[in-house]
Amino acid sequence: MSTVMNTGFLPLELLRIIFALICAIVIVFGNAVVMGYLERKLAGRFQRRPGPMEVGWHGILQLAVDGVKLVGKQLIIPKQTDRVLYRLAPIISFAPAIMPMVVIPFAPKLQGRDFDIGLIFILAVVAINVLAILIAGWSSNNKYSLLGAMRSVAQNVAYEIPMLLTLLSVILVTGTFSLRGIVEAQSGGAWFIFFMPVAFLIFFAATLAETNRAPFDLPEAESELTAGFMTEFSGMGFSLFFMAEYTYMFIACSLTVILFLGGWSGPPLPYGEYTSALWFFAKVYALLLTMIWIRWTFPRVRFDQLLNFCWKYLVPFSLVHLLVTAVVLKL
């Protein structure tokens, strides 16, 4: 088939990648807009307010207006910042957010590229965000920013461990790092959440911490650190961080869906090879809504409690879980 489509100078594979990248960018921006709106609307409703109401029907265009406002804003660079790093930080945060989209299998035929090590690829790329936050905190020349950045690094490093340990449990069962392989292993409704609900909970808690979401949003704890590492950023810099945050949430929830909720699997649809992406998105957004729900309910944990929770609860539980999985598999 590839010979038919081959246009001579552009190999099909390259075309596919370019198309996938464009789709990825569309998803990134689309997700940021949808999430921004949902977050504000739901925050309002949780608090018995209507949320954004003025721009468009029920404020549906609010995010577009905000985007224009943020783009049009003056870029303020405070005195004595490290100018290069200060400008680089939002970009370093945002750019890696696009890459994982290429390997996420939205539907059997909707996947940019299937790597054997897709899972590792995502984890590796996403980890760059910590660096961006550290750079942002350091270059702003603001003590609040720096405190936020330091918290972020400690938190992300600590929570990577339970996350990886629970991942290992899944990998032990599937025997592959390929995301497609993991989804296919759960076909027919045999989702891993039914076999290892504890692992799901641990993984979800860890993703909350990895994406700096409440109740683990210490890097930007606004009542203590004003806005944490984002304190000094305005305009485009701020909006890039903002979009990156939502994209990382999307990626984290996608991973959860792929690992535990059976990816695209669901009741069959016509043209299922493409349209089953609907199930995928439905599951991802259900998780994202839960994240929003959690954020607008709970207070923030303290820093030592955050680490205690990781080392005293998540790590032992995930270790035991890994052991049990291994033993069960061997039997």
Partner: peptide, 9 residues
């Protein structure tokens, strides 16, 4: 909070 979500503003 879920209950409050569905109550009127």
């Amino acid at each position: 909070t879920l209950r409050e979500l569905f109550r009127p503003v």
